[in-house]
Simulated scan of single mutants.
Amino acid sequence: MPEGDRDFSTWKENIQQIVEGLDVPVIVKEVGFGMSKETMEELISLGVQNIDVSGRGGTNFVNIENDRRDTIDFSLLGEWGQTTPESLLESLSLQKEVNILASGGVRSFYDIVKALALGAKATGLSGKLLQTVHLEGVDAATKIVLDWEKAIKHMLLLLNCHNIQELQETQLLLRGPLREYAELREIDYKYLARR
């Protein structure tokens, strides 16, 4: 933001004070750029127990802020950061230490199933539902949620999973750009195909 505060020198202390000072769960959420393993490890060291990776693919704050400015064009950074699936891969070795939530680019029941299979404890989405409420009303958005609930149950059936825990133990094959990302970051993803 042109008028925003760009002094991030105390972010660690601020987060730690919030976590230690509140007696309710604190969720640290990205703003649509995803998170690396190193960032999540830093948050864990500060006492954070709930991280929403909010990867690239959903609300894009580079584009939002770029539309608000008159000077430098930052549209080249529209693809900045990790996608939600990439961030979930980054979190694989940390999922026993922290609750990982997935948002950013979640647009369908299929995206929800994939995120849960990669270890997310929960998923979040807003764009599709807010747009539906705006254009078609609350009943139409409620219908989407109920239809997706049924669709997720059908997906679990197709995968021979009785619940989310079994889904998180089902075998996954990574291909294409997601596999390439895992290989470049040296993330041990091959065990997913054998679990």
Rank of each mutant, 00 (worst) to 15 (best):
M1K: 12
P2V: 09
E3Y: 13
D7Y: 06
D7E: 06
F8S: 09
T10V: 03
W11Y: 14
K12Y: 04
N14G: 07
I15F: 03
Q17R: 13
V19Q: 06
E20Q: 15
G21V: 03
G21E: 06
G21L: 04
D23S: 15
K29C: 00
K29V: 00
K29Q: 04
G32F: 00
G32I: 00
G34Q: 05
M35A: 05
E38V: 05
E41C: 06
E41T: 12
L43Y: 01
L46P: 07
N50Q: 02
I51V: 07
D52N: 08
V53D: 00
G55S: 00
G57P: 01
G57K: 00
T59F: 06
F61H: 00
V62M: 07
N63T: 10
I64H: 08
I64A: 07
E65W: 14
E65N: 14
E65M: 09
N66G: 07
I72P: 00
F74K: 08
L77R: 06
L77W: 12
E79G: 11
E79D: 15
E79C: 03
W80S: 03
G81N: 02
Q82E: 13
Q82L: 15
T83P: 06
T83S: 14
T84L: 00
P85K: 05
P85S: 08
P85D: 08
S87V: 01
L88F: 01
L89E: 02
E90A: 05
E90H: 03
E90F: 01
L94K: 05
L94E: 05
L94M: 08
Q95I: 10
E97R: 13
N99D: 12
A102T: 02
A102N: 01
G104S: 04
S108N: 12
F109I: 01
Y110I: 11
Y110E: 12
D111C: 05
D111R: 07
I112L: 10
A115N: 11
L116R: 00
G119K: 05
A120Y: 02
A122N: 03
T123I: 01
S126M: 08
S126F: 09
G127T: 08
G127Y: 03
G127H: 04
L129E: 12
L130D: 10
Q131E: 13
T132H: 05
V133R: 04
H134F: 11
G137Y: 10
G137L: 10
V138S: 08
T142C: 13
T142I: 14
K143H: 12
I144R: 07
V145D: 09
L146G: 06
L146P: 07
L146C: 12
D147P: 06
D147E: 15
D147F: 05
W148T: 07
E149V: 06
E149G: 11
E149H: 15
K153V: 06
K153G: 04
L156H: 09
L158Q: 13
C161V: 04
C161P: 04
C161T: 07
H162N: 15
H162G: 15
I164T: 12
E166M: 12
L167C: 09
Q168V: 10
E169Q: 15
L172M: 15
P177K: 15
P177G: 09
L178C: 04
L178Q: 05
E180N: 11
Y181E: 02
A182V: 04
A182S: 10
A182M: 05
R185D: 01
E186L: 09
I187G: 02
I187C: 02
D188S: 13
D188F: 08
D188R: 15
Y189Q: 10
Y189P: 04
Y191K: 14
A193Q: 15
R194N: 14
R195C: 11
